[in-house]
Design a binder for these strands. Structure first.
Length: 551
RNA sequence: GCCCUCGUAGUUCAAUGGACAGAAUAGAACCCUUCUAAGGUUUAGAUGUUGGUUCGAUUCCAACCGAGGGCACCA
């Protein structure tokens, strides 16, 4: 609708209009949409914006889209959309409602997220990455993209050596996460042990020691099994699992070739480095003095491996924002050695989940694991529904759906870039601006629809209530919310929209009796509730949150 | 030391340079003989400091104060 209005204005004022936009005013008295004449004119017009606004108004007044147009303030044009337009949109609501063909030309997208490392914990930061990556995947898919989900996992490198060292030298029966924390601690505190761990790391690469090989295989297998259980619960299905061990040799070769071309340089102790300073960045090591590829070289290999698996038009990598500067350097180097892939690659970063007392770190063992959080939230839901008359299957579905919904929403309700201060009692809420609040609004609508069916009330738009409410209007804005989320790589624009939608529906629900045989408007109200539930269901799906029939 | 983010109600978050800065939560007061009260209605409360650009700044620029992250062999 925004775009429609924009086109109408452009048709009137001529083609070479500078950038201006049509907005939804905060105050409902200022119309359904509004635009600022100053933005159309640009600055140096010298004309009276009010007069211009009046003349624009005169020219488009007859358009049947609007009930009335007002000129207000220093030069605002406020558009009041005709009720009929909203009803027509309402009639068109189906499971594809809101879809835009945004990816006609470049459909193929690969998106890399979650990325936990075997031998280490799956912590709540991974939950955050998963929430954002999964939601972006679904948004792009909905808009017509052909999305492949990738999960990149570090099965080689110092963290593995630290964990295995911890296993060998701590106690054989330590948990892998704990073993890692122990190894990491010793690595930092004790020079002697640091050397041992570096030595061990080489042995892992060489696969020269049977005991180490056995520990490695066992640890990796256990980790992956554990991760796949969590993905199951999160309803994320990856198309590709890519391991560092698969990309490291390829990455190394790319760097070696780049060294010949002068992209990379020899640094101290035989390390191969990239001088980022020339590009306003910093220097990073791509191959270390042991001749082993670092994270940066592996990432170059990863880009190529991904492209081999899937000829993508765009590759998105989701990570925490602590890697922002790292990615700038790596992408700068990639631009020199793999320019075609570099221009297709994009880094999307999200904030960190921080504990009130400081940074969460698996090195110190101060972490909250993903499964511990899920379990804790599930307990709370269980407690809440224990007195309800539900079958075992229903209970299980509700407990899982609500718990994951609450967690996902707590991540997606704010802009992806900023940190979340994780406080269990406050972060995971069931009331107000929360996942369960949205799920609950949907459930209520379903309950109404069930009752309507029982009473034989069929949905119909034939007899429309006299006055259109906010509910009809907000339903018409769903496509805009999706488009905004897609273009900005920000699922939270959908969260914001759905929270408002749920609030408006709940008010409507409190003020109107929807199912009422004696009321001639009941079929319309039922149809409206039906449209609402379709939008809510699709919207929640885009966030990776399940809808429930009962809760 | 250098670079990058970010400072908005008590708290957690919104606000494409525009019309009185929105929610939620905590606080106060109401609403279940009506489709699930995980709900609804009413109420009080905020832009770190100092300048600048602009008709207009939470938004852009500068400085300062404060928080977080990063800066050659972790990922």
């Amino acid at each position: 609708m925004k775009l429609k209005i924009k086109k109408i204005i452009e048709a009137v004022v001529g083609k070479d209009v500078p950038n201006f936009s049509v907005e939804i005013p905060g105050d409902k008295n200022n119309g359904d949409y509004s635009t600022n004449v100053a933005l159309i004119l640009g600055k140096q017009s010298g004309k009276n914006p009010r007069e211009i606004a009046e003349s624009i108004k005169e020219k488009i007044e007859k358009n049947s889209l609007f009930e009335k147009i007002e000129v207000a303030g220093p030069g605002f044009i406020n558009f009041f959309v005709a009720d009929k337009v909203f009803i027509d949109i309402l009639k068109s609501v189906d499971k594809n409602y809101g879809r835009a063909e945004s990816f006609k030309k470049s459909r193929r997208i690969i998106i890399d997220y979650t990325d936990p490392n075997p031998f280490k914990e799956f912590h709540i930061g991974h939950l955050m990455s998963n929430a954002i990556g999964e939601s972006l995947s679904r948004i792009f898919e909905f808009q017509g993209g052909e999305v492949k989900r990738a999960c990149y996992q570090g099965d080689v490198g110092m963290h593995v050596a630290k964990a295995i060292w911890g296993k060998i030298n701590g106690a054989e029966n330590l948990e892998w996460g704990t073993a890692y924390a122990y190894g990491a601690k010793m690595f930092e505190e004790n020079e002697e042990k640091k050397k041992e761990i570096i030595e061990l790391n080489k042995k892992i690469f060489e696969k020269s020691d049977a005991k180490i090989n056995r520990l490695y295989d066992e640890g990796k297998k256990l980790s992956l099994k554990h991760f796949s259980e969590i993905y199951n619960k999160l309803d994320t299905k990856f198309d590709y699992f890519i391991f560092e061990s698969q990309v490291m040799e390829i990455g190394k070769k790319i760097v070696e070739a780049g060294l010949k071309n002068g992209v990379f340089e020899n640094g101290e102790n035989g390390a191969i480095i990239f001088k980022g300073e020339e590009f306003g960045l910093h220097t990073r090591v791509f191959i270390n003095s042991e001749g082993l590829p670092t994270y940066e070289a592996k990432d170059l290999g990863l880009a190529e491996v991904k492209y081999k698996k899937y000829k993508y038009d765009k590759s998105i990598v989701v990570t925490a924002n602590e890697q922002n500067d790292y990615f700038k350097v790596m992408l700068c180097a990639m631009d020199k050695v793999l320019p075609k892939l570099a221009e297709k690659t994009m880094h999307v970063s999200h904030g960190m989940l921080r504990l009130p007392e400081g940074k969460m770190s698996s090195r110190t063992g101060k972490v909250i694991t993903g499964e511990a959080l899920i379990e804790k939230v599930e307990e709370l839901v269980k407690e809440k529904i224990k007195d309800r008359n539900l079958s075992e299957n229903e209970s299980k579905e509700i407990i899982e759906g609500v718990a994951i919904g609450a967690i996902r929403y707590s991540v997606l309700k704010q802009s992806a870039g900023s940190d979340i201060i994780y406080d269990f009692d406050k972060s995971i809420s069931f009331e107000g601006d929360s996942g369960p609040y949205l799920q609950y609004a949907y459930t209520r609508a379903q309950s109404v629809l069930r009752k309507a069916k029982e009473e034989g009330i069929k949905l119909s738009f034939r007899k429309v209530t006299d006055k259109i409410t906010q509910l009809e209007k907000i339903i018409s804005r769903f496509p805009e919310a999706i488009l905004r989320a897609e273009q900005n790589y920000e699922p939270h624009f959908i969260s914001l929209y759905l929270a408002e939608l749920a609030g408006i529906f709940n008010t409507y629900y409190a003020e109107n009796k929807i199912v009422d045989k004696a009321d001639e408007f009941s079929p319309y109200r039922v149809a409206l509730a039906n449209a609402f539930s379709l939008v809510m269901k699709n919207g929640l799906w885009l966030l990776g949150i399940k809808t429930l029939e009962k809760m």
